[in-house]
Amino acid sequence: MEVVDAIVLAFWVMLPAYVPNNAAVLAGGGRPIDGGRTWGGRRVLGDGKTWRGTLVGTLAGATLALVLSAVAGDVGSAVGVDLPTFPAPAVVALPLGAMLGDIGASFLKRRTGRERGAAFPGLDQLDFTVGALGVTLVAAPGWTTETFTLPVLAVIFVLTPLLHVTTNVGAYYLGLKSEPW
């Protein structure tokens, strides 16, 4: 697989996982998933993980996956790469997994004494990726192993941290986030 093809394919298949956290930030607010509960003297998740954000993020990613499936042939022809469509289980699994990965990272942050918004290098950049890939592997195993080949995974694990840092810094300067990570 050519490097450019792997980059295009990796970006394409991860878009439904890249969008949910951004949509959740824009939806913002609402009832926290942990309902304000604490564990070991610290919040379980914190105010930043809400039911509304999780729902809106998942719906935004699923909607994007459906749109991408509808245009895969035309876009693939235009860019010269065979782009896959998203089977129904992956339509939901990629964005939901991204949200669950982010929620899991919040849980780990609280357990390690980090407050909301505190940096956790590595985890902050890849939590949603690991969640998306894990949930999608369970929901659509054949599609996942066929689509996420080693070259595509390598691109994802290099591209994602770069995109994450860039979009978070941009959101910070636009006043959408209170910290640039």
Rank of each mutant, 00 (worst) to 15 (best):
E2P: 12
V3I: 14
V3D: 02
V4Q: 07
V4W: 12
D5E: 13
A6Y: 08
A6D: 09
F11M: 07
V13K: 10
V13G: 15
L15I: 03
L15P: 02
A17V: 06
A17T: 10
N21S: 15
N22R: 07
N22I: 15
A23K: 05
A23W: 05
A27G: 09
A27N: 13
G28W: 04
G29S: 06
G29Y: 14
G30K: 01
G30L: 07
R31P: 01
P32N: 06
D34Y: 00
D34I: 02
T38C: 02
T38E: 10
G41V: 02
G41P: 00
V44E: 05
V44T: 07
G46R: 07
G48L: 01
T50V: 09
V56K: 10
L59M: 13
A62H: 13
L64H: 03
A65F: 02
L66E: 14
A70D: 03
A72V: 06
A72G: 08
G73M: 11
S77C: 01
D82K: 10
T85G: 14
F86G: 02
A90K: 09
V91C: 11
V92D: 08
L96Y: 11
G101M: 08
I103E: 08
I103V: 15
F107M: 13
R110F: 14
R110Y: 14
R111T: 03
G113D: 10
R114T: 05
F120S: 15
Q125P: 11
Q125W: 12
D127E: 13
V130T: 14
V130K: 11
T136P: 04
V138M: 06
V138W: 13
V138K: 03
V138T: 02
A140Q: 05
G142W: 02
G142L: 10
G142R: 12
W143A: 13
E146P: 05
L150F: 11
L150A: 13
P161G: 14
V165H: 09
T166A: 15
N168M: 09
G170R: 15
L176G: 08
L176P: 09
K177M: 08
S178D: 11
P180C: 08
P180G: 08
